[in-house]
Computed example of a mutant assay.
Amino acid sequence: MPSSTLPADFAGARLHVVTGKGGVGKTTVAAALALALASTGKRVLLIEVEGRQGLSQTFDVAPLGVDEVRLVSHHSGGELWGLSIDAKAALLEYLQLFYKLGRAGSALEKIGAIDFATTIAPGVRDVLLTGKIYEAAGRTKGGRGSRQKGLHYDALVLDAPPTGRAVRFLNVNAGLADVAKVGPIRSQADSITGMLHDKRTLVHMVTLLEEMPVQESLDGLRDLADAGLHLGAIIVNQIREPHLSPSHIAALGGSDDVLDETLRAELVSAGLRPTNPMVRGLLSEGRDHAQRLALQDDMAAEIVAAGRPVIELPALTGGVEDGGIAVLSDELLAQGVR
């Protein structure tokens, strides 16, 4: 099912947005993608915006804050940095930048005005969050006033909100339609929209080979495309390898008596003493596994029909610990991520 090669626009992307239904491993995939890009010699910034500190848990580091932290230095010369964007901190920074509030901004926070501003108008909150991404994407080497040429980061990977909120989050101008029609917030939203709709920004969809995640992913892809965003790859996570051969799966469709006799004979030949509970349990597990594989095949066909590049990632029996993220990173590289 995976594409043999990814399109050229994938290699040219500067901002990779990773979304997907909750529970499909979106944060893990975003981390693996960022590590894969860094291993090619790039300086990469990995960003989270939901405040769950999923990245710090993934890389086993202290909770990320408003300052960018180096997570990995790769022998290729690449670097992976991490950032957790907080809406309140972003608003305080915004007020200082545009209105020079200084200590007055802290006073507003104490009386709850900052919390009010970041919750009463979701569109403004999304502009603040994406505004930090916009700043990091456009930052030049050495910072403001530096004579060094080139961008500070070669690529950015955003662990975005889940599918149900991703379109609203990325379509910041629509969210501001009834909130701010003019002024600095609207101007910033226009600039952010330009970045998010640029062909160098790709939105990747993470899914599992299960009915609900696949259906939500396909619906989400249509909504993203309708919003004018550029689609990247469908990343199928946690692929389970078959434990039975095609001949064994075909045999499971036979009669119970024949299967019972065949399985008992194979257990005896393996030096085991078959019991009735053992045989019934193995047959039940075998049929469940065969049904799971058939479902995977059906869901894979629906994903292929969507017409997007497909990347497959294996299920990690030990989780992301003990080098699991590196395993997924290597898989992404092997399937053309650059």
Results as ranks from 00 to 15, higher is better:
Ala13Gln: 12
Ala13Glu: 11
Ala13His: 13
Arg14Trp: 10
Leu15Met: 12
Leu15Arg: 10
Val18Gly: 12
Thr19Ser: 14
Thr19Pro: 06
Lys21Asn: 09
Val24Gln: 07
Gly25Pro: 07
Thr28Gly: 11
Val29Phe: 10
Ala31His: 09
Ala31Tyr: 07
Leu33Phe: 15
Leu33Lys: 12
Leu33Pro: 05
Leu33Glu: 09
Leu33Met: 15
Leu33Gln: 11
Ala34Tyr: 13
Leu35Thr: 10
Ser39Val: 06
Ser39Gln: 15
Ser39Met: 13
Ser39Pro: 08
Thr40Met: 09
Lys42Asp: 08
Arg43Val: 05
Arg43Ala: 06
Arg43Phe: 07
Val44Tyr: 04
Val44Asn: 06
Leu45Cys: 06
Leu45Gln: 04
Leu46Thr: 05
Val49Ser: 02
Glu50Tyr: 04
Gly51Gln: 01
Gly51Val: 03
Arg52Cys: 03
Gln53Leu: 06
Gly54Asn: 06
Leu55Pro: 02
Leu55Asn: 03
Ser56Gly: 04
Ser56Val: 05
Gln57Phe: 02
Gln57Ile: 02
Phe59Pro: 05
Phe59Val: 05
Asp60Val: 05
Val61His: 03
Val61Ala: 02
Pro63Val: 01
Leu64Gly: 00
Leu64Arg: 01
Leu64Gln: 01
Gly65Met: 00
Gly65Gln: 01
Asp67His: 03
Asp67Cys: 01
Glu68Tyr: 02
Val69Ser: 01
Val69Ala: 00
Val69Leu: 01
Arg70Tyr: 00
Leu71Ile: 06
Val72Met: 07
Ser73Asp: 12
Ser73Cys: 08
His74Ala: 15
Ser76Asp: 13
Ser76Lys: 11
Gly78His: 14
Glu79Cys: 14
Leu80Met: 13
Leu80Glu: 11
Leu80Arg: 15
Leu80Gln: 14
Trp81Met: 14
Leu83Tyr: 11
Leu83Ala: 14
Ser84Gln: 15
